[in-house]
Design a protein around this nucleic acid. Structure first.
Length: 115
DNA sequence: ACGGTGACGAGAT
DNA sequence: TATCTCGCCACCG
């Protein structure tokens, strides 16, 4: 069960994002120690096996906007899921990151990186 | 093995 | 503030 690729680490992290909070692609990249791999994080989520059942909708971009645009993971669905959790979008369809961005406990990150 | 690809992001205009 | 541009890098055929 060792940590294989970056993809699996991304999925593991997203699994821990609590309801009512969000993370950004870039933030996940930083947590993983690859601050410039934000695009790769996005790609990892694009190829998320649905059977993993991870809260993919809690990942948005650094502007506080929804980037999703593929199949069942549509922007509309993602927004609805987030609003159901109490997350608020402003008039420009943005989430206030100061208010809703997740600040993961350091020990959680260490345990994920050290798997 | 190697290059195209993408749910990004920061800086420039 | 809204767009546009370009660099980024793990995957997979």
């Amino acid at each position: 069960m060792s940590a294989k690729g970056l993809f699996e680490k991304v999925w593991t992290i997203v699994t821990h994002v609590p309801e009512g909070q969000v993370v950004t692609y870039g933030q996940i990249a930083v947590l993983l120690g690859n601050p410039r791999a934000a695009r790769t994080v996005g790609w990892a989520l694009h190829s998320t096996p649905d059977l993993l059942d991870i809260p993919w909708h809690r990942v948005i971009n650094s502007a506080g906007r929804i980037s999703t645009d593929c199949g069942e993971h549509s922007p509309t669905v993602q927004r609805q899921l987030l609003e159901q959790e109490g997350i608020v979008f402003d008039a420009r369809d943005r989430v206030d990151l100061d208010r809703f961005q997740w600040r993961p406990p350091l020990e959680l990150i260490e345990s994920i990186l050290g798997e």
